[in-house]
Design a binder for these strands. Sequence first.
DNA 1: GTCTATAGCCCGATAGAC
DNA 2: GTCTATCGGGCTATAGAC
Lengths: 212, 212
Amino acid sequence: MTTTTTAEFTRARLRNQPRILEAAEQVFARHGYRGTSIQAIAEAAGLPKSNVLYYVGSKRQLYVALLERMMSRWNAMLDDISVDDDPAEVIEAFIRSKMALTRSHPQGSRLFAAEILQGAPFLQEYLRGELRDWVESRARVFEQWTARGLMDAVDPVWLIFLIWSATQHYADFEAQVLGITDRMALNDGDYQAITDFLCRVILKGCGVVARR
Amino acid sequence: MTTTTTAEFTRARLRNQPRILEAAEQVFARHGYRGTSIQAIAEAAGLPKSNVLYYVGSKRQLYVALLERMMSRWNAMLDDISVDDDPAEVIEAFIRSKMALTRSHPQGSRLFAAEILQGAPFLQEYLRGELRDWVESRARVFEQWTARGLMDAVDPVWLIFLIWSATQHYADFEAQVLGITDRMALNDGDYQAITDFLCRVILKGCGVVARR
DNA sequence: GTCTATAGCCCGATAGAC
DNA sequence: GTCTATCGGGCTATAGAC
């Protein structure tokens, strides 16, 4: 029996698709869109170049799919907040979940960084739409907390950028962090310590008051 | 007289060299080493491709020269400190000079970021040598300040990374910052406000005490 | 110093045998 | 679904006319 069944087709797709996505995320993150070749992705995935194109359609489609996957992980993290929440709890949870994302998906973080470095050609719309709205709605809550004397009068947007930059740094600049600290990798203990450090410094630095 | 004098050769070099370096820094920063073509640099510099290669030798030499130029700007900023200095003054000056570098050389900051994202293939030695030594010597001073009760017990290395990430962010993620804040560019006032914000939050967050 | 031509290679994508 | 062959084009770098 040399006939190939539909089940085998499906199985092949299930086996190869994730491999290709992981390999592609790694290469795009390192070398950007232009600097990445299908050949390099194929080698990293252990497949012939043609098979990669067979599965993903085109280089562009693959890149966009990876960006969308990362943005959906990001969006899944962004729960809503209200003025009546406890600022200390909310900001600490914000820092911790952002850091957890950096820890669990460093490759995706670097892919995003590479896209922004390129001038965000594929993410302009997202940045000026969904993401801007999200930042502004948070900013309004922060301002109300300030008005109620629950935290210092800091610009909420600069605060959000501070949290983003401080957490992403450990994925995006991993090569620098590892070189300077003379490590092979950051472990769970390191991430725990860094997260605690960031929570402490940022909450204290912004004069955030715990409600009770 | 159609003879070309030596003086004219020199003048041509003086005119073209800087143009090429600026153009190359921009393109390498956006697209990384592999993603950059001499053709793209030549177009940005307004010169034929061959002339670019004539002046710079090779793509690799050009890239290395740009990294070295950026590292020398960086090194020029890193003055020495001692335990007897005032922590508040030193850390504030550190944040301000780092932010000034981000402001004056955003392209260079992005070039560095792209190099690190690639896994720092050309800067491994620098990171694990000079830069590591510099960080460790600073860290020792911070620890002594902590021992003397002049600041909280924070890990000095995470603090240095916090300052680096928070300041570089405005160059490296400029596309994101502009998209979210709906600006065409950040002006001097914005930079002033961001710098003040960062000094305030970080000094307060680390419990840094002014000596007098 | 400037610029055209070209060598030699790798690229994304497709056609078509299996 | 897999894989080889190939097309048309862009790449780095150099040779050589001007």
